[in-house]
Amino acid sequence: MSDLSDLGPLVRPASLHESVAARLRALIFDRGLAPGTLIDELALAHEWGISRTPLREALKVLASEGLVQPQPRRGCVVAEISEDDARQLFPVMALLEGRCAFEAARNASDAELVELEGLHAQLEHHAAIGDTDGYYRANHLFHTRVQALAHNPWLSRATDQLRVFMRLLRGRQLNLPGRMDVSIGEHRALIAALLARDAKAAQREMHDHLMAQLEALEALRATEAMGHAPKVVRKAVKPRSRR
């Protein structure tokens, strides 16, 4: 873990706990604090050179967001996404992100779609060299950008609230052998539909992409539970031709 020096000057008292909350989020999303981890308030406060008061205020913020869970007489632990949680979460995200893709295909400017194509190129690069961590990060940027290009603040608000919990999984499904190759195929179909401004196809491809993530996650968990090496995913996804 690092200190808070890169967060800039802390002028207002309220800004300290906000900065601490931002750092805690980053640690959680980057697995510096893994799901189920008990947060050691004393250690963090000492390491970051702060009192426990702003840290506790920051933890209250994260608890309200669902990222940490208070435990009686223990403190806070980082939230975990169970199998049941995932089965309920992914279909809802598939609906929301599918709608984001639908509206992005209709509402994004030509320049914005060119920019999105550039983000897809980053995905292609990471997939080509087998960089799972880089692929995950680029994938997060791509999905959040599609959401922004829908230009629908109400849709974005709802999607943002649930994307937080998706990030707790940190792309675990990409650890299933062969999944990244399949995922990039799904993305090729998606970007082709977006560039063609085929809103219905974009919605379908995004929806199916999210549900395929759930399928891969469940396959990974099943093989891990049996103590076997995950089976290689071999399903191929062909990109749709542009109109």
Rank of each mutant, 00 (worst) to 15 (best):
L4I: 05
G8V: 01
P13Q: 05
P13K: 13
L16Q: 15
L16K: 15
L16W: 02
H17W: 09
L24F: 07
F29S: 10
D30F: 13
R31S: 10
T37I: 03
D40Y: 00
E41G: 08
E47D: 14
G49W: 04
T53Y: 12
A58H: 04
G66I: 04
Q71F: 01
R74P: 00
G75F: 02
E83W: 04
D84A: 08
A86I: 08
Q88K: 10
M93A: 00
E97I: 03
G98T: 06
L113H: 01
V114I: 13
G118T: 11
A121Q: 12
G134C: 09
G134D: 07
Y135Q: 02
Y136S: 05
R137T: 09
H140L: 08
F142V: 15
A148H: 13
A150R: 06
N152T: 10
W154Y: 14
S156E: 14
A158S: 12
A158K: 13
V164E: 10
F165W: 11
M166I: 03
R172D: 15
P177C: 10
R179C: 04
S183Q: 12
H187R: 10
L195C: 09
L195V: 05
Q203L: 02
M211R: 14
A216K: 03
L217Y: 09
L220R: 05
L220E: 07
R221L: 14
R234G: 15
K235S: 08
A236R: 15
